[in-house]
């Protein structure tokens, strides 16, 4: 066995952990399939009656839905490791400082590993099956090779933005006694505003034009619409730049909260 970089090693552990639960993996795939199908049925009903006012190509929307289902674990807001909350609340996080890696980087890697490993187990079957489905239901190929490349880049940036957001929630525990309240409020709001429930183009124009410039627009919305060419040209460049900006801003903010929180903890003596 070769030696792994510590961050890669997290990924390997998460993958092994995920593979232990094979029934859970299949169940997850089936569940996401069903939900995706129901969504498509709903939008098809809308499309049938209102073709002229439909704000996206139906084929693009169908791809949006399947990609979201396939990469759900990568992009959702609720992929937490609950022991990390406890670690902060109990003050045991101070012990993590003994390890030879920075806390922010380590937890960022842990969260990214959690997401990537969960998605890795599930996206394959969903992508393959949904690509094989007949015309109105199936996943469509990307708009172009260029769009596909931009999609991959944007997907990685989205993972970064989402992880940075999760870390802010983790580290906010330095300041509140219980993380549960914050989570139960923040998760549904984020899920809604980032387009995971209703894609941004289907929201009222004033709302979606504001959301574009917020961190929410830099999450699932970006890669999934780039894939089908719904975002292209100048808008594409702008979207990618916004993603880079939010990744930097949220990472910076998270790191700062962590830094100050740890300082406070050390002063109080845990």
């Amino acid at each position: 066995m070769g030696r792994f970089h510590p961050h890669l090693s997290f990924f390997r552990m998460q993958l092994i952990k995920g593979l232990q639960y094979r029934t859970a993996a299949w169940a997850g795939i089936f569940t996401q399939f069903f939900w995706g199908f129901m969504q498509i049925q709903l939008y098809r009903a809308l499309y049938a009656a209102h073709q002229s006012t439909f704000p996206m190509a139906l084929s693009g929307l169908v791809s949006y839905i399947w990609l979201r289902q396939a990469f759900l674990a990568l992009l959702n807001t609720w992929s937490y490791e609950y022991e990390l909350f406890d670690m902060i609340l109990s003050g045991n996080v101070a012990l993590e400082l003994c390890r030879p890696v920075g806390l922010y980087g380590m937890w960022f890697a842990r969260n990214a590993a959690l997401r990537v490993s969960r998605a890795a187990l599930r996206c394959g079957p969903i992508l393959i099956i949904s690509a094989l489905l007949p015309a109105p239901w199936g996943l469509n190929p990307p708009a172009s090779w260029g769009a596909f490349a931009a999609f991959l880049l944007s997907l990685i940036l989205t993972l970064g933005v989402t992880c940075a957001m999760t870390l802010i929630v983790y580290f906010s525990c330095f300041y509140t006694l219980s993380s549960q309240g914050l989570r139960t409020v923040l998760d549904p709001v984020t899920e809604f505003l980032n387009g995971a429930i209703v894609p941004l183009p289907f929201m009222p124009a004033w709302l979606s034009s504001v959301l574009r410039y917020t961190p929410f627009g830099a999450m699932v919305n970006a890669p999934l619409r780039i894939y089908s060419g719904d975002i292209r040209g100048m808008e594409l460049t702008e979207t990618l730049l916004l993603q880079v900006f939010w990744l930097a801003a949220l990472t910076g903010l998270g790191w700062l909260i962590q830094h100050r929180g740890l300082k406070r903890l050390c002063l109080q003596g845990g």
């Binding site: 006694l177 219980s178 549960q180 309240g181 989570r183 139960t184 409020v185 998760d187 549904p188």
Partner: peptide, 9 residues
């Protein structure tokens, strides 16, 4: 506190 936050959630 957590009770009211969860209700809101």
């Amino acid at each position: 506190q957590s009770f009211f936050m969860s209700t809101l959630g």
